[in-house]
Write a protein that binds this DNA or RNA. Structure first.
Length: 349
DNA sequence: AACGCGGGGAT
DNA sequence: ATCCCAGCGTT
């Protein structure tokens, strides 16, 4: 029996019932695929349900504002996905008359849709013969066929792309793609895979050679850097000063409190001697510490955030173009990153 | 070819 | 602590 048939056989007995598998609507499949990029099914599920409920079709999605999309995306991470989705929806509205494309060659042109996502949507919505290659597929193929080339190198990508294509079930591309990903997620897991009860055991290179724990090979990421953020809570009557983050850094276009970044950790109220602080607030300022060195871990950096309460007599709204006073009761409506919304949950302003 | 980009769960 | 998740875009 072919590799594909064995995978599909496993799938018949073990598949998950997921909402985006019960539709051929390319819009809904697109929604699920973008949400699930680098995101576990359990984590993405509530977001998927919220999005299909709020935006029933791509036109509703396109006609929302980017702020609205990011607000619904809040807490899911990798926010460029939300921004790119909004751009893509606008393209589908303006260039495709609101009809979501279903072919690989059209899908891959959309922002946020790469090779994996184009293969997934075109096979699931239109039975195109496109093999998906995601983290699950890399792992299953490397173990079963014994490929030791690192998966996160161009050479590895080339080998695995070919291997994925060669093993695609040409008669049932959608079924096979779903099957191999579920097999990787539920059975051929990164840690403690279920080899003991695996029907593919005797044909699996890694199992027969005692290399299951060694595959796939992956080049390790470099170490995270440390950053120190100082956030200022500035209230005026029933309003609070908020700032919208710019490009070329984390959390692009999300809202937060006005802040200063320093290259080293600071003690107590040392921030008041910082040139940037003096330029913003001047000498006539009252400041107090609210929360110190809250650690926030991203995949590529460690952020240490300190929160201060600030009373200033200056007109601070004009200090920066991205600064604006927001009614406290409207704070919930802004798209914020986790550091900010989790501070607000405990702060009770 | 390498890097930047979140947040959370499993081990 | 470390790994990795239905990856993509930029440099």
């Amino acid at each position: 029996m072919s590799f594909a048939k064995k995978i599909i056989e496993w799938y018949h007995d073990h598949q998950r019932d997921l909402p985006w598998r019960n539709t051929r609507d390319a819009y809904k499949i697109w929604l699920s695929e973008i949400i699930l990029q680098q995101t576990r099914v359990e984590q993405g599920m509530p977001y998927y349900l919220r999005f299909v409920d709020r935006y029933a079709d791509v036109l509703a999605f396109a006609n929302a504002s980017e702020d609205d999309i990011l607000h619904l995306w809040q807490g899911l991470g990798y926010y460029s996905r939300g921004r790119n989705m909004h751009k893509a929806a606008g393209i589908v509205r303006d260039m495709y008359q609101g009809e979501f494309p279903k072919s690989y060659v059209e899908l891959i042109k959309l922002p946020g849709v790469g090779e994996y996502t184009a293969a997934a949507i075109s096979s699931f919505s239109n039975d195109e013969q496109q093999a998906v290659l995601d983290g699950n597929v890399f792992r299953v193929l490397s173990r079963y066929f014994g490929v030791e080339t690192a998966i996160n190198t161009p050479a590895g990508k080339k080998i695995f792309t070919q291997l994925a294509k060669d093993n695609l079930d040409r008669d049932y591309p959608a079924l096979y793609n779903q099957a191999i990903m579920d097999f990787g997620a539920l059975h051929c897991k990164p840690k403690s895979p279920l080899c003991g009860e695996c029907e593919l055991q005797l044909d699996c290179f890694a199992y027969t050679h005692g290399m299951v724990a060694d595959l796939p090979v992956k080049i390790k990421a470099k170490k995270s850097r440390n950053r120190y953020f100082h956030y200022f809570i500035i209230q005026k009557d029933d309003e609070i000063l908020m700032s919208k983050r710019g490009a070329s850094d984390v959390w692009e276009n999300l809202y937060e409190f006005p802040m200063i970044e320093t290259s080293e950790a600071l003690e107590g109220l040392e921030i008041t001697a910082h040139p940037e602080f003096v330029a913003l607030f001047g000498p006539e300022v009252t400041i107090s510490l609210l929360q110190r060195n809250k650690k926030h871990v991203l995949s590529h950096q460690n952020i240490y955030a300190t929160f201060y309460s600030v009373l200033s007599s200056r007109d601070l709204e004009q200090k920066k173009v991205n600064w604006n006073y927001v009614l406290l009761k409207d704070l919930d409506k802004l798209a914020k990153h986790k550091l900010i919304f989790s501070f607000l949950e405990t702060a009770k302003l």
